[in-house]
Design a protein around this nucleic acid. Structure first.
Lengths: 208, 208
DNA sequence: CCCTCCTTACCCCAAATGAGCGATATAACT
DNA sequence: AGTTATATCGCTCATTTGGGGTAAGGAGGG
C-alpha cells in the first residue's frame, strides 16, 4: 500500500514539482493545495500518512494548518517545509505539533529520507533547525552575554518571579533604592527600558 | 586536514572497533578512553573537532563528561553515543550541552553522517530521540486552564513581549483604557497582581 | 597611586501602572 | 426574557516604576 501524502504549498510550480517527484518515487499524492484553510477536513477525508506544510500561504498560514490537522487527526505526520528559519516561527510550529521541520533548500533525496524517518517515528529536521532546538535546552553560557554582575543576576532572578522592587529589597535585605540602582544597570546592560521587557528578555533568552 | 575525534567508551572492544572504523574512513582518532574524569584536559590538549561520548562509564558518567568538555572548550562538538533512551538521561545530556544524541544501534554509515552533520552546525539525533525532543514543545491543553478569552490571550501575548499598555493599545488599535480593562481581567484570572507577575506566570507555565 | 567596576544608598520628578468605581453594546445561552 | 460573558471605553487616585542625577566604600588592575 503506497504512502499517502498531502501537500500544502502556495507556489504552484514548486507544489507541482514536488507532487511529480513524490509520485515518481512511489508515493501517492492524494491532494495538493495552495492554501490550508480546509486542512482539518482534508486530513479527515484523505487520511494522509504524511503532510508537507508550507508556512507562508495566502489566508491562513501553515502554523494554523498544522494545529488544525493535529487536532483533527493526531496520527497524521506533519513536516513543515519552509524557507523560514527564525526562532519564532520554528517554535510556534513545534508547539502546534509539527513532527518535522525542513528548510526548502533541502535536496529531494533528503526529503524522501525525511518522509521515511517521520513514518518510522522520527522527527526529521534540517541541521540548522535541529541545532536551534537543542540549544533551547542549554542552560548556561548565554547567561554572561550581557555581562551582568553576580548581584545583578540575583536581582534579575527575583524580578523574573514577578516580585516588586519593595519585595525584592526585603528579600535581599537591601534598601529600596539600592535595588532600583541594580535594576537601572540591568536595564542598561540588557538594552531594555522596563522590568517587563527585562523579564521577557531574560526568560525568552534563558539568561537565568 | 583530517577531522580529529576523541572517543569515550568503556567497552574496550566497541571502542577499538569504533576507532578502527573511523580511521578507515579518513578520520583521525586522537584519543580513546574508557572513562572521562579527565575529559576537560583531554579536550584542551587534543583540541578534537568531535567527541563521541558514552554515558555509562566507571567513575564519572558521560553527562559530567560533556559538561566538562563544554566548559573547557565549547567549540568542541560532543555527540552522545549510548544505549539509553530514557527521558531523564537524554535531557540531562542536552542541558549539559550535548550537540547530538545517537543510540548505539545506529549503523556505522549513519554515524559518519552524524559526524559530518555536527561539524556543519547540525545536531544529529536518532529518530526516536528527535521525536522525544520535539514532543517537549507540544503545548498541552493547559493553555486555557485560566479560561482566558481570545482577546485576553491576545493582550497577554503582547504583554509578554514586554510592551507597555500604550504600545499594546496602538498595536491592537484599541483605547488605552480598554487594554487596561483586559489586563485587569487577565490579572484576576491568573491570580496575579501586576504585569510582571503575569509575564512570569505566562512564560513559566507556557500559557501562551 | 589612579582608574574602573561593583555594591550600596539617597534625592527629585514624571510617567506608567493597578485598583476602584463606572458605562454601553453585542452575542450566546437558558 | 433574563443572565452571562465578552469587548469596548471612561474616570479618578494612590502606588510603582523609570530616568536623571550624586556619592561613598571596597576590590582589583595597571
Amino acid at each position: 500500500m503506497p504512502i499517502k501524502i498531502v501537500l500544502f504549498e502556495d507556489n504552484d510550480r514548486l507544489r507541482e514539482s514536488l507532487a511529480y517527484l513524490l509520485k515518481m518515487n512511489g508515493y501517492e499524492v492524494v491532494g495538493d493545495y495552495n492554501q490550508c484553510s480546509d486542512a482539518a477536513n482534508i486530513a479527515r477525508v484523505y487520511v494522509p500518512d504524511v503532510v508537507l506544510m508550507d508556512i507562508d500561504m495566502p489566508g491562513d498560514n501553515g502554523i494554523k494548518g498544522v494545529r488544525w490537522i493535529k487536532e483533527a487527526r493526531p496520527q497524521t505526520s506533519v513536516i513543515m517545509y519552509t524557507v523560514f528559519e527564525d526562532d519564532e516561527k520554528l517554535f510556534e510550529c513545534l508547539c502546534a505539533g509539527a513532527n518535522g521541520y525542513l528548510l526548502k533548500k533541502t535536496p529531494p533525496a533528503k526529503l524522501f529520507d525525511a518522509i521515511q524517518e517521520v513514518l518510522e517515528g522520527g522527527a526529521p529536521m534540517s541541521p540548522v533547525i535541529a541545532r536551534k532546538v537543542l540549544n533551547t535546552f542549554q542552560v548556561k553560557e548565554t547567561s554572561n552575554k550581557y555581562n551582568l554582575s553576580p548581584r545583578e543576576i540575583e536581582v534579575l532572578q527575583w524580578l523574573i518571579k514577578g516580585y516588586s522592587i519593595k519585595i525584592i529589597a526585603a528579600e535581599m535585605k537591601l534598601a529600596f533604592d539600592t535595588v532600583r540602582s541594580h535594576l537601572k544597570n540591568i536595564y542598561q546592560k540588557l538594552h531594555v527600558n522596563c522590568g517587563k521587557e527585562a523579564i521577557a528578555k531574560a526568560l525568552s533568552e534563558r539568561i537565568v
